Computed example of a mutant assay.
Amino acid sequence: MIAQVAPVLIAFGANLGDRGETILAAQAELAATPGIFDVAASPLRETIAMTLNGPDPEAPRYLNGVARATTTLTPHELLDVMQRIELQHGRVRDVRWGARTLDLDLILYSGRVIADDRLSVPHPRAHERDFVLSPWLDLEPAAVLMGHGRVADLLARIGDTTSPLDRSEDPDHA
């Protein structure tokens, strides 16, 4: 049996620890996973922390990015890999939308709609998150978010509060 190859989009975020190095390590781990190929990552962007109560300028700032890839893994197998990588990097799930060492979200999986107790794809809030849309636009200027339209139009509608990462000013990177 030949495995189906599915294009995917994965979002990365971190606001604790060495944010940039953690995201780069997670991207490398994904790329080294059997069944995941052709990982292409966006530049990282810095954003204010988003909490259940809205933006929090007092919380540590996030680094965010996205990566395109292809996979022969099923959506749930890919989710298991992503959650394993999060755990290996110290991810704790005790506060919803709380600070984290690493957050991986499956944004798209081969044009499929998935809605079950473990996974919702396309990601249900991607269209309203500049920290997903802005790096995605950096990576893929003609990108379209299934069910919502052109990424450039979505970002123009909600506004872009992200800023490109300047590694010389990144306190996590000495």
Rank of each mutant, 00 (worst) to 15 (best):
M1Y: 11
A3P: 05
Q4L: 12
P7S: 13
P7I: 03
L9M: 08
I10N: 06
F12Q: 01
F12P: 00
G17M: 08
G17A: 05
D18F: 03
I23T: 02
I23Q: 04
L24I: 06
A25E: 09
A25S: 13
A25D: 11
A28M: 05
A28T: 14
E29H: 09
P34E: 13
I36Y: 10
F37M: 14
D38V: 01
V39P: 12
A40S: 10
A41C: 14
S42A: 12
T47W: 01
I48W: 00
I48G: 02
I48M: 11
A49V: 02
P55M: 05
E58T: 14
A59Q: 11
R61A: 13
R61W: 08
N64H: 05
G65Q: 03
V66S: 11
A67I: 07
A67K: 07
A67D: 05
A69M: 06
P75G: 10
H76A: 09
H76L: 14
E77V: 00
L78G: 13
L79K: 03
V81G: 08
I85T: 10
E86H: 04
G90M: 08
R91I: 05
R91Y: 02
R93W: 13
D94R: 15
D94F: 09
V95D: 02
V95Q: 09
V95S: 02
V95P: 00
W97G: 04
T101R: 10
T101F: 10
L102K: 01
L104Q: 02
L104V: 05
L104S: 02
L106I: 07
L108W: 00
Y109S: 05
R112E: 15
R112L: 14
I114R: 03
L119H: 04
S120G: 00
V121Q: 08
V121W: 09
P124W: 14
A126L: 03
R129V: 01
D130K: 02
V132Q: 03
V132R: 05
S134T: 07
P135R: 12
W136I: 01
W136Q: 01
D138T: 08
A143Y: 09
M146N: 12
G147M: 01
H148L: 09
R150P: 04
V151Q: 07
A152S: 15
A152T: 13
A152F: 06
A152G: 07
L154F: 12
L155D: 09
A156G: 03
A156E: 12
I158D: 10
G159S: 07
D160Y: 00
T162F: 07
P164T: 01
D166I: 10
D166M: 10
E169L: 15
E169H: 11
D170T: 06
D172S: 11
A174P: 15
